[in-house]
């Protein structure tokens, strides 16, 4: 039987109190999933957490199963204007200071909430969701293990003549056979010059000897994502240029892993990898950020990017470190693992 995760709910309540509120409205699919597990489809529920309980208004068909599975929750069916229904419920509960996230609500609903006297709090749940609980970390490690095992498998499976699509299929299948519920994003398999495009969509190119192979993939285990990238030379005669670029990317990655410190901003961590690549003369070919937050979503808060000059990366935040160099038309190299922050520096999720 599903149950509300008390550790998570406590963290949410504490956050509400810290913000001097007495309740908060959640509409975002993943915010609701964080608190309830995967119960509602996107856009089909509004959830209110307050000091005394959890109130939900959702499509009517959820009323019976949810009240049976979560006896501690009050749920009311509503098939239209759930924002107005929520406002009415809040009045009945006599809550005085209720917040909502302006980035997650539509302009239409947000205007109604402001008119009802509620308070806008951008990125409200971010600090709570970024710092993973023990259970969350356990699931992320399990998801990472499946991905690493898959990489080992695919190295022995690859042979000349297979297409990018066939390789992606094998990766996806293998992850599912090993316990993943699904992939965490569309698997990227890029052969040869295709690796020079960091956002390549897997195509029909066929593998030949002495070619670059870039694999970027991950899976979901119990709602949590993994994400790894490996690039290697298929064959025994790697070009000099490939070897040099590979070494630069891998060293930039390792530098960032070694030197990142708890409390640094994303920009500071990004700069460790970026300045290494710049010093090697490849600065203009590193066209994306060093990493992204990861958890229930493949891209979430903990932005390891030049833009993030104000948000520190704190204890138990989970993120990728994935520098890359892309020489369009020739080849690209990316190397990626995921990590969590500790007081002693970063630790790999594995």
């Amino acid at each position: 039987m599903p149950k509300l995760d008390e550790a998570k709910l406590d963290a949410v309540r504490k956050l509400i109190k810290q913000n001097k509120l007495d309740g908060f409205i959640f509409t975002d699919y993943n915010d609701i999933k964080y608190i309830m597990g995967p119960v509602f489809l996107s856009g089909e529920a509004v959830l209110l957490v307050h000091a005394k309980g959890v109130y939900i208004t959702a499509r009517s068909l959820y009323e019976a199963p949810v009240s049976q599975d979560f006896p501690e929750v009050k749920i009311e069916g509503c098939d239209k204007d759930r924002d107005l229904k929520t406002i009415a419920a809040i009045k009945k509960l006599k809550l005085k200071k209720v917040g909502f996230d302006g980035l997650k609500e539509s302009y239409h609903a947000g205007k109604n909430y402001i008119a009802a006297g509620f308070i806008e709090k951008e990125n409200f749940l971010v600090p709570v969701r970024a710092a993973k609980t023990e259970t969350e970390l356990k699931n992320m490690k399990a998801a990472a293990k499946i991905a690493y095992k898959t990489y080992e498998h695919i190295l022995t499976w690859l042979e000349p003549g297979v297409s990018e699509k066939e390789t992606a299929e094998e990766i996806d299948n293998f992850m599912k056979l090993n316990g993943a519920s699904s992939t965490s994003f569309d698997t990227i398999v890029a052969f040869g010059a295709n690796s020079g495009n960091p956002h390549y969509g897997t195509g029909n190119a066929k593998l030949k000897k002495n070619m670059v192979v870039l694999l970027d993939f991950g899976c979901i285990f119990k709602d949590y994502c993994s994400d790894i990238t490996r690039t290697f030379w298929f064959g025994d005669k790697p070009s000099k240029e490939f070897k040099e670029v590979y070494k630069t990317v891998k060293s930039a990655h390792d530098e960032a892993v070694e030197k990142a410190v708890c409390g640094q901003t994303g920009a500071e961590i990004d700069d460790i990898a970026r300045s290494y690549i710049e010093a090697a003369g490849y600065g203009q070919y590193f066209t994306h950020r060093t990493g992204h937050g990861i958890g229930m979503e493949i891209h979430e808060e903990a932005n390891i990017s030049q833009d993030n000059t104000d948000k520190p990366i704190l204890e138990n935040y989970c993120f990728s470190i994935e520098p890359g160099i892309y020489i369009v038309g020739k080849f690209g190299v990316r190397y990626e693992d995921c990590f969590y922050m500790t007081k002693q520096g970063v630790k790999q999720i594995k």
Binding site: F100, G102, L103, K104, S106, Y107, H108, G110, K111, E122
Partner: peptide
């Protein structure tokens, strides 16, 4: 214009303040 049902509150508020028109 911007679509009031398919634009976030933050973006919509900024658009509206800068003379964009609401359209649902």
């Amino acid at each position: 214009i911007f679509d009031t049902t398919a634009t976030g509150y933050i973006a919509g508020t900024l658009f509206y303040k800068n003379g964009f028109k609401e359209y649902a």
